[in-house]
Simulated assay, not measured.
Amino acid sequence: MNTDQFLVKSELKHIDTASFTWQTPSNIALVKYWGKSNPQISKNASISFTLNNCHTITTIDFSKKQNSELVSEFNRTVDFDLFFEGKQKEEFKPKIAEFFRRVEEYCPYIFDYKMTINSENSFPHSSGIASSASGLSAIAMCLMSLEKEINADLSADFINKKASFLARLGSGSASRSIEGPLVVWGKHPAIEGSSDLFGIQFPYKVHSVFENYQDAILLVDEGEKQVSSTIGHNLMHNHPFAESRFLQANENLAKMAKILQEGDIKSFVNLVESEALTLHAMMLTSNPYFILMKPNTLEIINKIWEYRQENNSNICFTLDAGANVHVLFPESEKLNVLQFIDSQLSKFCQKNHYICDTVGFGAKKL
């Protein structure tokens, strides 16, 4: 794997202060990854819809340190303050500090600046919507904006590729939040240009039935997950079904690539739901085992199945690593499905809370 392409090789321009704001989305995987090796390499390829309304907005203010070039490379630290939704969040800093440690080889300029990070989500933090994906991709885009200012030769394509590469070092799914509407992360023979190092846009023409696809996120549980995704991924190392699962996921991605091009929506429904349940089956069969679904998660799934059968609908569900349910459906069914959600499903959500979303196109500079 050639990571040298992401090293800073040019002379960097001197800038005293800079500030950048990016809005980057969460994403929802259709074919999941669960299990990874260092440094943040997935055990199987995955593909996701980029979301639009579920996003993080992050501003980073950069101030050049005095005499930063005199600091020994053995005594350098990344200096940053972190504010989340207006409040200083010391408990979030270790994860961000670890991210900076992982990217410092590729972004050595971060030692030269004091950073003030202000971030906010459009959705509840740590509740099964991929907040690490949107949050770390936003930081990565801010870093690349600074790199562009001090190295003007960078192309837009390279910026997106390196941002995805950097974001991946913080959160694997964050590699899929730079672009959209469909992004593949992980080397796969059926996907031209795919890489373990960064996400790429799905490179083939997608059937019109999947354009402007809808995702209503039913917030069954807005609290923090009992078991983090990091712990869950680590439990795949000695999982009895791990190797079979990795093989299955790669086979499913090849099937999904064909489905998306041909518009076989019935097969799409079947594969997406199977992937969601398989993800949670890996949690149920790990050691120690755990359950992230809640009783209302299952109530919603059964209601979706009933509705689909009674109305010959193409509605389906998927799940991330949490209790919340993503209800996916084509735009042509939007009116009827939203009425169904409001009248039948919202009662299973915490405070009747759900988010109406649609597929989006990735990061936006504000």
Rank of each mutant, 00 (worst) to 15 (best):
I28Y: 05
G35M: 13
K36F: 12
N38A: 14
P39A: 13
S42M: 09
K43D: 15
N44V: 13
A45Q: 09
T50Y: 10
N52T: 03
N53M: 01
H55C: 14
H55S: 13
I57G: 05
T58V: 08
D61A: 11
K64A: 09
K65R: 10
Q66L: 13
Q66F: 03
L70N: 03
V71K: 11
E73C: 10
F74M: 06
N75A: 14
R76C: 05
V78Y: 07
L82M: 11
E85A: 13
K87P: 02
K87C: 06
Q88M: 15
K93V: 10
K93C: 15
K93E: 15
K93P: 15
K93Y: 15
K93D: 15
P94Y: 15
I96T: 11
F99C: 04
F100P: 09
R101V: 02
E105D: 03
Y106S: 05
P108V: 07
P108S: 03
P108G: 01
Y109V: 01
Y109H: 01
Y109I: 03
I110P: 08
F111S: 00
Y113N: 10
K114C: 06
T116Y: 05
S119E: 12
S119C: 05
F123R: 14
P124R: 11
G128T: 00
I129R: 05
A133Q: 02
A133L: 12
A133S: 12
S134A: 11
L136N: 01
S137V: 09
S137W: 03
A138C: 08
A138W: 00
I139E: 01
A140W: 00
M144D: 12
M144N: 09
K148P: 08
E149F: 12
I150M: 07
N151P: 09
L154P: 12
D157R: 11
K161E: 13
K161D: 14
